[in-house]
Design a protein around this nucleic acid. Sequence first.
DNA 1: TGTGCTGAGATCGTATATTATTTCGTACAC
DNA 2: GTGTACGAAATAATATACGATCTCAGCACA
Lengths: 225, 225
Amino acid sequence: MTTTAIATQSKSQLAYDFIKSRIENSSYTPGYRLVLGAIAGELGVSVVPVREAIRLLEAEGLVQFERNVGAQVAMVDPREYEVTMQTLSLVEGWATAASAPFMTPDDVARARAINDALAESLHHFDPVAFTALNLDFHAVLFEHCPNPHIRELVDRGWARLRALRESTFSFVPGRARESVAEHEAILGLIEAGAETFELELAARNHRLGTLDAFLAHQHAHKETA
Amino acid sequence: MTTTAIATQSKSQLAYDFIKSRIENSSYTPGYRLVLGAIAGELGVSVVPVREAIRLLEAEGLVQFERNVGAQVAMVDPREYEVTMQTLSLVEGWATAASAPFMTPDDVARARAINDALAESLHHFDPVAFTALNLDFHAVLFEHCPNPHIRELVDRGWARLRALRESTFSFVPGRARESVAEHEAILGLIEAGAETFELELAARNHRLGTLDAFLAHQHAHKETA
DNA sequence: TGTGCTGAGATCGTATATTATTTCGTACAC
DNA sequence: GTGTACGAAATAATATACGATCTCAGCACA
């Protein structure tokens, strides 16, 4: 702490952040092969920290890895989307319910403002923007979750979704309007000081509703076997 | 697949399994410092795969890690125990409920046999043995969980518990008898084809009951500030 | 035309070596 | 005596090097 350097981060962390952001902003699309040497060269580091970063991302499910073969960005598998949403509904529902008692009136107002923006955006609908705002909204709801493990699982779930597909609402735009209405219902429950359990279920079913909409859409449009 | 070698595992996997088993069987107790070079020497490998294994274990919460300082087995923190049990109650409850429809009568019989053994063991109570059997029982209940993510979270939760403390029942032996009774109740729900949700709640509350027993015990015995 | 072998190139896995950082003991100043 | 500065030892972090393994194109042969 003598020089100007402000706590330089480790090379592995650098590689981790780099790859993760590339996956999340779709620079690396599903199936993209992550070659150690190439990434290392691009970052100006050796392969060792890159390898470590990839193994960590594998543990999070963002990349698939095969020994002696290599890693690639996790594939877009509808089944994978389904289990991820299921898992997220479980942990996010709990996190939202557990977070509610710690929400201030200001937090609620903030969430409502975001939901108003979501409602407004329905008029000039953009799935990507909607999804980003949607995360902002839910982040306010679960940010006070007192259980850091579950909180982390929620974050991982969202990270996975970002990696898996641009946006559910790209496929099922009709779900967006319902979603906004359900948001308001959830806010109502919070303001009314609803039972923890009731809130957990509402938040869970809200997410499962989006999943069901996707599955229904997929079922209706199944062209291939 | 030509020679005798039966798919030799990687050195990192070797290190991972080694350290994990040492933690779980308490050879490495909480707070034990994991020195890369020492472990590498013991296993006859270099530090690189050992380091990778430790980072993976960190992601699972079994070890704590500080940059430029090193890793140590995760400390026994009552608060940590609490959030782990909370998380486990959530995911295990869901996994149990989701697994139930796939359970065969034979599975149920197997679970009941294990619970009978648990009941029997109450007469000559051994916390460690009881905990091991207890996991066997629950494993039968959630083994058919169709969501692999959640299934993995359940496994991680149990692994964490093994690392955190030998057994809750060491501290609160009285909970063991209740636990056996609740097991039977859960089996009854399964046989009766109870609602998914009712079963989820029963399994969740069963786990939370053990947590509450621990917390109550801790509260009653708090000598230090 | 199709199937199996073979070797080169690509890439991974890990050992070894080097550098950076922290920790801790010791000496010196106050 | 107490606190601070210096330096050596320990250890982590990363780079480099090399051996191991996989992939795939090209050829032989049926």
